[in-house]
């Protein structure tokens, strides 16, 4: 179990670094797919079976296909290195390390009060659906309205504007 976690963790971190570090957007997108699949496997290890499947179907299946489609549609060139690039990269990495330094003690000190109820719950479709359609029914319906609005908004934004006059 521990070895599996270490392997998946290494995969997830390496592919996340790949997303940021690789020059070509296509390579970044493929690294992100790898990352999402790794996270889905971690969900499965955490007994969140339904979320693991949804992660693959929605994220790796739908969203990333959309992203790759846009990248190929726009035919992007490789990003040119910038003059201030090195300094900016160093500063951003420094900021990231500081941020991590703030987070890390929280995890080790703040978690001591937790009692671990591990392995009592399982995110099966049955348990998930029951909760989603009873206590979280209203947010669920609101989410469907949100998706509808997003689709209409995407169509409006993507529409070509006519010359002269807003149509």
């Amino acid at each position: 179990m521990m070895i599996l976690f270490a392997l998946l963790g290494a995969l997830v971190i390496a592919s996340a670094i790949g997303v940021v570090a690789l020059r070509h957007p296509i390579h970044s997108a493929l690294c992100l797919v790898l990352n999402l699949v790794g996270v889905a496997a971690l969900y499965a290890m955490l007994d969140a079976h339904f979320l693991s499947a949804v992660q693959i179907i929605v994220y790796a299946g739908a969203i990333m296909v959309l992203v790759l489609f846009v990248i190929m549609l726009l035919n992007i060139k490789v990003e040119q290195p910038h003059r201030r690039g090195i300094i900016l990269t160093l500063l951003a990495t420094l900021a990231g390390v500081c941020f991590l330094g703030i987070l890390a003690p929280l995890f080790y000190r703040g978690l001591r009060g937790f009692t671990d109820h591990s392995s009592k719950i399982e995110g099966t479709v049955e348990a998930f659906g029951e909760l989603l359609f009873t206590r979280y029914l209203f947010p669920f319906e609101a989410a469907s309205v949100l998706i509808m609005v997003a689709i209409v908004g995407a169509v409006m934004i993507g529409k070509r504007h006519q010359q002269g006059g807003s149509k």
């Binding site: 997830v12 957007p25 500063l91």
Partner: peptide, 22 residues
């Protein structure tokens, strides 16, 4: 810890990269 590392990499990426898709 893994999640924190991933989040930090994401923050750095937003700061470093200039391509809006990335």
């Amino acid at each position: 810890t893994l999640a924190a590392l991933m989040f930090t990499i994401g923050v750095c990426g937003v700061a470093i990269r200039r391509n809006v898709i990335v």
